[in-house]
Structure formats: structure tokens, C-alpha cells
Design a protein around this nucleic acid. Structure first.
Lengths: 347, 347
DNA sequence: GTGAAAGCGCTAACAA
DNA sequence: TTGTTAGCGCTTTCAC
């Protein structure tokens, strides 16, 4: 009941354990007859290679370690809320692990710790993951990358902003997405389009803002500084920002750099007696679950986080299964403009 | 750089590997002098026990395997949405693993598979988890519990409905929470209080409905059958249900069995020209993130999922570290009535 | 093509 | 209190 070992399989098939090992690892140089016998025994016994024995014996551990930022996680833990982004990411990684018969281990990395290097080395030594999945903001942490490089562990980075050439990078074109969204508003006839940007220290903020500005420029519209206000990606800051924007000459559309802020804009607009989308169009970015439930539902950009994680995991799996098989190292996945009720033709 | 082994530590400290093992495993019978020497070497070398070697050698693997329903996960994956419930659950498990120096592995279990037993046995044999965290609906799957029992693997169940005595169960009092919410509406002066229940095949649905009915009875109010309509926990069904409820003599308050449906009720009420909470009070259950962003924000019950998972994980860790140390086997955690803008005094 | 032997790093008996 | 010796189940040489 405790699970069959390679010896059990070898005994039943009447071969050596090495032959069993060859078959289960899909190595060459095994005759059809041997293979069949072994496969029969494997099925009959429900044999599965022991993860720890494999890892210990020095082969691929088939473990993908997802390195998640501890501070962010603790923050979520305290607030009693889940992390939609991380959840989607994990879903994708999980699906791919399942396909490849890998296992997903989630590990907290304390980013700011003075013992970061020691902690990571200990972690890597203890787990010996076949590959590491780096989630933001770890994706851009230079020391983390250095340690991984030095330890010779393969890694894939989700949405990195800097040095995309290091490791495998999976990203989407943030600037283009913001451009498309702004363009959508312009196509609806809007001319005074405001932007609620993200905090300056997030690289995504500037990319999204650049896309917004580029779309305006290309349409021959001026980028009025008064039409851009900076939030901090929170719902509350969305409310605050819409307040500022409605003070002067009103915009007819507001594009927020993420959904949480867009939802705040929605609420702030309602409080100011404006109807969305009749009096004001509002667009977000991310496609969080709440974007579907708001009144009206939010037009937004769907970032394919799960697909990104799946792709990253696939690369990790492939690179450890068939080293040297990787082609491109920077993968860009398509996003989607999701049109819902919060944007409409400018009156 | 590949990580120090127990031999390296023993050599540096000038002791045998067994002594090192004793120290790092906090066993008794080690002199202070020895302990100090070993500890110095451990720190100097950044030594960490190899997970796979420990597991293989037959000791506690320090791995907690969270068994997640594959079908549910695939559904989420396809819809491109995260799973807030699972995310919170994982957060809690992760925090506790970190404290106890355990590792969290997330595994998909295909519930309906005809090879469930074989799959699980293979999984358990391959991973040898120290404990298994069962999330709904696996918490109530009799075959899963049987297999775990037979394999002798410790398990903790999150929100089980049946046989709470099997394994460790961590739950909240659903009936009481629903009672409290209904009572809250009664206290606000409401007399015609409707209930949008969950689907009949979910045990939580009936528990919540019972709480609702009990509160009405105790307040001397009749439980009119026309005031209870059954949804399926989705946003869309909330919209449909509020339509039915507004057809006849209108309720002044609606208590939905989960937030998604409550959000649908909110939207349906708005579509019918009703202002919430002036014309109608609406309450939900779960405290999903969206409950905070709706207009108005939703009064709801906060289910402490993360705390439940943390507690469950703690029990698993304790039971494998100090077998026989468990006291109670059914743990009930407190919930919280979260009052927001969607409920108000009955006019 | 197949197999025997030697570890991987650790813990679990058993000695001393 | 400390150390020695076998394995755990597998992959890796290296023979045949």
C-alpha cells in the first residue's frame, strides 16, 4: 500500500532495475519486448517514481518552485483578501505542471531580508527545484537573478521590466494595450481623455501612460498635463483622482491604469452625480473579477496571467527535460480589449 | 555553492554526522558544547537539510500537500479568473508553513476520475507529504478520506459538512452566521425579508437557509415560501432571483447566500429602479473582494478562510512534529458580520 | 541492448 | 552523550 518501488516493478517484469529506470524515463536503447513487460508491471503495480529518490539521486526533481514575494503575501493575509493575480498565475502554472507531471511548490521569498542570499541558497539546496517561476516583483530583483544564475537554476520571469534577456521572460505589451484602449476611446469620439496613472515606481505605470500619450499624439490630440493624475493602484486613490479631474474642465472619458482605480473612478463619478457611460466613459486595465460586477461593468484590458504562467512553466519544463531546446527567450503573449458597459460614444 | 551537506557540517564542527543530525532536529541528549560547535558550523556553511534526503530516509517530509479539485481549477482556468477562496486558503497555509519551516505543494485531484485511488496513492507515494490539506469539495469526498486513512496520511479538512470527526476539521458556524445576518436585518426594522438561497446540493446552502429561517421564527415572523428563491451561487442567478422577488409583494430586504448572487441582486434592483439601501436592503455572504467595490458596498459575512487554512496547517504540522499532541479534532473559527452600505433601517 | 555496483544526503536502528 | 552502520529508492557510471 505504501507504493511500489522500482525493485517491485523489476521483479514482476523479470528485468533489472536499470531497465525499468530506462523505460520510465523514456531513454533509448530498450527493446520493444522489454519495454512492454516493464510497462505492464508499472500499470499493474501502480508504480510511480519517488520524487525524493529521484531528486536525491541527482536527476531532475520535477519540482517547479514559484517564488512569491513574502511582504506582498503578508499584506494580503492581513487584509483578509486573496490575490487574484497570484491565483491566476498559479492556476496556469498548475495546469502546465499537471500536463508535464511536475509538481508546484509555492515559496515565500523575503525580498528585503538581509539574509536573502543565504535564504535562497538554502531553499534551492533543500528543494533542488528543476526550475523557478519568478513572479513580480521578484521578476526584476537583480540579486535574486544573480543568485539563481550562480546556483545554475533555470528560471522564468513573469512580466519583467528590466533585462528581458535574462532567463526566460514572459510578458505582454503593456504600452500597446494602453495605446489600444486610448485609441478605443478616441474612436468613440472622445477628445478630452484623462488618465489616472499608477505610482511612478512601478514600471507598468509608465508603460501604460506612454501608450496613452502616444495614442493621443497620433490622433493629433494634445496631452494636457492637467488630464493626467497619479494614483497608487488602490480603489481609494481612484476616488480621489476622479475628484481632481472633475474640478476643472471635465474630461468625457477617463482611462485608469488598473481596474481597482477605475472602480474608484466609477464610484466617485456616481457620487458626483454623473452617469457612466452617458456623461463619462471609464476604462480600466487588468480585468479583475470585480470589473464584471460593477455598475456598469468595466471596459478593460484582460492580461492573460494564467497563460503567461503556463507558458513560463512550459519553458521551464522543456528546458530541464530537453536542455538546449529553447528557441526564443522573450515571449510576448496577446492581451485582449474587453468592451463592457462603462465606455460609450461621446455625446 | 551547491549547498553544504551534513558531512561538511560534521567535518567543520569536528563531530559525527549523527550529532549534527541531532542538533538540527532538536533532539535531546546533546551537550551544550557540541550543540554550539555544530550550530556555528551550520551558520557558517549556510547548511540546510536536504528535503529529498530526509524524505527518502523515512522521516517527516515537511511537505504539506494541498489537494485542490481539478475540475474546479480547470473551470477557473478557462474562465480566465482567479479563485479568491483558494487564494486566501493558500495564503493561510503558506504563512503557517513558513513559520514551521514546512513546504506547500499544490496538487490537483481529479475527483471524478475512475483512477482516483490509483492516482492518489501514486501521488502520496511519490511525494510522501507529512500532511494533506483538503479543500472543498475534497473535504467531503468519502473515497479521498478512505484512501488517506488507509495510507496513514494525516489530513485536515477545510469546511467539511459530513463526518466532522474524521481527520482534523476546521469550519465556521454557517447556520449561526446566517442567523446573525437575518437578525441584523430584523433589528433594522425589516419584516419582509427574502432569501436567495444557494443550490440544494451544497450543504452550505441549507445551513445558511436554516439560519435565516430560524431567525425569522424566533422573531415571530412567518417564513413565506414565496420569499425564498433558489439561485446557483452565480452573479447571473442573483439577477434572475431578484426579478422573481420583485414581482409580487415586495420584500424590504434580501439576504443572498453568497456575495456573487448579492451583487446580482444589487444590479437587478438598480435595473428595476430601486435604490439600495433606501428602497431595499441587500446582504451577502463570503466577503469577496468585489463586495467592497460595489455600489453601495455590500453588507456581508466574512468567512476567515485564511485563518482556517492556517489553523488546519498548524494542526498538520503539530501532529507530525509531535504525534499525539492534538487536542480537539473539530475546530470552529469565528466569522465576522461586516456592515457596509447596502443595508439600512427599513423605511 | 542490458545489468551490477556505487553513491545522492539523510535518518534509524544499534553500539559504545 | 556520542558514533557506526545500514539502508530509503533512485540515477549514474561503467562493464558486459
Amino acid at each position: 500500500m505504501a507504493g511500489a518501488t522500482i525493485y517491485d516493478v523489476a521483479a514482476r517484469a523479470g528485468v533489472s532495475i536499470k531497465t525499468v529506470s530506462r523505460v520510465v524515463n523514456r531513454e533509448a536503447n530498450v527493446s520493444k519486448a522489454m519495454r512492454d513487460k516493464v510497462e505492464e508491471a508499472v500499470v499493474a503495480l501502480g508504480y510511480r517514481r519517488s520524487l525524493s529518490a529521484r531528486t536525491l539521486a541527482g536527476s531532475n526533481s520535477s519540482i517547479i518552485a514559484a517564488l512569491v514575494d513574502a511582504a506582498l503575501t503578508i499584506e494580503h493575509w492581513k487584509s483578509g483578501r486573496g490575490n487574484d493575480y497570484l491565483s491566476r498565475l498559479e492556476l496556469g502554472a498548475l495546469m502546465e505542471c499537471r500536463r508535464a507531471d511536475y509538481h508546484l511548490m509555492v515559496e515565500l521569498v523575503d525580498h528585503g531580508s538581509s539574509t536573502l542570499e543565504r535564504d535562497m541558497l538554502a531553499l534551492l539546496g533543500s528543494i533542488r527545484p528543476a526550475g523557478v517561476l519568478l513572479t513580480p516583483p521578484n521578476s526584476d530583483h537583480p540579486l535574486v537573478l544573480d543568485i539563481l544564475d550562480r546556483a545554475g537554476v533555470a528560471y522564468a520571469r513573469i512580466s519583467p521590466e528590466k533585462d528581458p534577456g535574462r532567463g526566460v521572460s514572459v510578458r505582454m505589451n503593456e504600452r500597446q494595450a494602453a495605446f489600444d484602449m486610448t485609441r478605443h476611446l478616441i474612436d468613440l469620439g472622445h477628445r478630452r481623455i484623462a488618465h489616472v496613472s499608477g505610482p511612478a515606481n512601478f514600471a507598468a505605470s509608465s508603460l501604460r501612460r506612454e501608450g496613452y500619450e502616444q495614442a493621443l499624439s497620433e490622433a493629433g490630440l494634445a496631452c494636457e498635463p492637467s488630464l493626467v493624475v497619479e494614483g497608487d493602484f488602490t480603489f481609494a486613490s481612484g476616488i480621489a483622482c476622479v475628484g481632481k479631474l472633475l474640478e476643472g474642465e471635465r474630461p468625457t472619458a477617463i482611462f485608469a491604469a488598473n481596474d481597482d482605480m477605475a472602480l474608484g473612478v466609477l464610484q466617485g463619478a456616481a457620487a458626483a452625480g454623473l452617469s457612466v457611460p452617458q456623461d463619462l466613459s471609464v476604462a480600466g486595465f487588468d480585468d479583475t473579477p470585480s470589473a464584471l460586477f460593477s455598475t456598469p461593468p468595466l471596459t478593460t484590458i484582460r492580461q492573460p496571467v494564467a497563460e503567461m504562467a503556463a507558458e513560463a512553466t512550459r519553458r521551464l519544463v522543456v528546458s530541464t527535460d530537453r536542455p538546449g531546446d529553447e528557441d526564443e527567450t522573450v515571449i510576448t503573449v496577446p492581451y485582449e480589449l474587453v468592451l463592457r458597459g462603462s465606455t460609450a460614444v461621446c455625446r
